[in-house]
Structure formats: C-alpha cells, structure tokens
Design a protein around this nucleic acid. Structure first.
Ligand SMILES: [Zn+2]
Ligand SMILES: [Zn+2]
Ligand SMILES: [Zn+2]
Ligand SMILES: [Zn+2]
Lengths: 159, 159
DNA sequence: TTGATATATGTTATAGTATATCATAACAAG
DNA sequence: CTTGTTATGATATACTATAACATATATCAA
C-alpha cells in the first residue's frame, strides 16, 4: 500500500522477491515467463522509474537479445496485460507494478523535476468517478490515475 | 457535473454556448483566441469525441489553414494549457472540456467499442490517492483519471 | 507615432513511439 | 506425423510530437 519510489529500500532483495513472485504467479496461471519477458521485468525493476520501450530495447540489445521494437513491445504487452507492469500514458513509459499480487487501480505520482514515479492505489469506487459512471450507465473495466507534481526530494530545490 | 457524451443533447446551442463562454473567458484573462485556436476548439466541440492532432489537422487543411503539424499542436497547447480542452493520454487524442468554467480533475470514461468519451469530475482529495501523496510528501499539481470500459449504447451489442 | 518587446504563425526537417505483416521456430495434442 | 497454438525473428511502415529558424502581428511605453 505504501508508494515506493521516493524512499530508499533494500533493492537487491526487492528485485529478487518480485521476480520470484511473478514466476510463481505465472506458474499458477499457466503463463510463460520466457527469458525475454523475465529480462524486461528485471530491467523495469532495476530502476523504480519509468522506462521507454526504446530504452528497454537498448538494454536488451546489450544483453544479446534481438533488438527490434516488436521484441520490447511484445514483452511489455505480456507484462502489462497480466498485471506485472503498467504503462504510464503521460510519459509513454513503463514501470514494474509495485503491488503485483492484487487487482488494483494504479495511481502514479510523477515528479516533473526528477521524473521518478511512485505507484499508489486509487479507490475510485468511493470517488465521484464511480457515481458518474453509474449514472451514465458506463461499465468501467480498467482505470488509471496519473498525477503530476513535485516529489519530496525535489521540493524546495527546483521550482 | 453530468458527463455528456453518452446522451443526446441540443448540439447546435451546445457548441455556440461553449465558444461564447471561452471567448468571454479569454477576454477576461487577456488570452488571444485567434482564428486557428477558435477553429480547433470548434472542431473538437463538433464531435464530443477524442480527435488526434492529425485528424484536426486534416480539417484545418480543408478549411484553408496552414496544415503543418505545429499548427495543430500549438493550438492544442493553448487550449489544453488554459483548460479549454484536455489530452487523453491513453488515446493520444484531444477533447473539448465539458466543464471549462472551473478547475477540476477530469475523469474520462472511454468506450473501447465506439471510442466515444465522456468527461466527469474526480474528487481525488477524498480518495486514497490524496492520502498516499500526503504520506509520501508529494505535491500534486495536475491529475487525470482515465477509465476504459463499455458505454451504455454499446453494452449488450459487442463484447 | 514609433520603436522595443512579447506573442503568434509559417515552414522545413527530424525525433520519438508504436504497429502491421509475414516468416520461422518450438511445442503439445490428436 | 500433422495440425493447432504460442512465441520469436525480421523488415517495413504508420503514427505522434517537437526542434529550429524565419516572419508576422499584437501590445505597450516613451
Ligand atoms: Zn500496480
Ligand atoms: Zn523529484
Ligand atoms: Zn474538463
Ligand atoms: Zn460505446
């Protein structure tokens, strides 16, 4: 529930635990966490920061994977489609999910200074959004909140 | 407060009233609603539907305006920057604001079948999002909610 | 009015993001 | 073995957005 990304944490075990967790979920749900898919997840986890598809592609290339755009986009589609990562539309960039074990509406806090991103969880069902949708007869299937502002590390420094 | 877009309304007066309202606000705030800016606003109002920059550009071209990409993007920057329109990041597309008279966090209900869009208003300040941001020391300056699903007109028809 | 300053537009070129398409490989089920 | 399914390889192209520089128009103070 705590947004990570603006506070330090034990990152080595963080990555290992996340990868193990995703491996387990894939096994349970009959999903194939192929080498390139796992590698893209690791790349995203390595920084808790949004990365563009072409940034990821550059790392894959350095790792010896085939490096055409579809390679990255396919792996990202898999990760996003199965809830292991999110796309931040405002940045055209991707992040590993910080809460991969449960369904949720992600809420991204995007620092416009340092461009770091933290993922919280929104509760739209108790927001006016749910009421508007209900009134309109609209069925929400997926949702995302994207907030731009200034993180605690950058507050005071730059305007 | 009511999302429009999934219900019919008197569209002729809707456009006229919106344009008049924006003209008035521009006068009050010392903003120049130049011909191309007003025309782009009208184009967005003509459909309550998200339009890509290049769709808008095609209409401008037909109207005899210069039709290079910056023409559309500049007008859109003006409209979005001053709250008369919004960008829907998920669609890389733009819509006229349905509530241009007040500051608000827009919440878009995007039908994945017919691609129509309705704009409601979110109240993030009473959502868990605000609490997460406060806990993290993050200052939210702008925010948007984008929800994808099925509108009442399409529910039942397509899966 | 005039000149200085800021704002807006015209135009060309290019950067950045994402997908369509077709071919090939790996594997499992029948 | 062959057929269906899923994942990859590879090429080309579509779509979205901005940089950079030139020109014009508005605004305002002197
Ligand atoms: Zn998440
Ligand atoms: Zn920051
Ligand atoms: Zn709005
Ligand atoms: Zn619909």
């Amino acid at each position: 529930m705590q947004p990570i990304g603006f506070k330090s944490h034990d990152h080595g075990t963080c990555i290992a635990h996340s990868v193990t967790s995703v491996q387990k979920q894939c096994a349970e749900r009959g999903l194939q966490l192929t080498p390139v898919r796992q590698r893209v997840l690791e790349i995203l986890l390595a920084k808790h920061q949004a990365m563009g598809a072409y940034d990821i592609l550059a790392v894959l290339k350095a790792d010896g994977f085939s490096a055409q755009p579809p390679v990255a986009y396919r792996a990202l589609d898999f990760l996003v489609g199965n809830g292991f990562a999110h796309k931040i539309e405002r940045l055209n960039a991707f992040v590993a999910c910080s809460h991969p074990s449960s369904e949720h509406v992600p809420a991204f806090l995007i620092c416009r200074v340092c461009e770091n991103v933290a993922e919280g969880i929104a509760n739209l069902s108790e927001d006016t959004v749910a009421a508007s949708a209900r009134d309109a007869g609209f069925i929400i299937e997926r949702a995302v909140v994207e907030a731009e502002g200034v993180c605690p590390n950058c507050d005071g420094a730059q305007p």
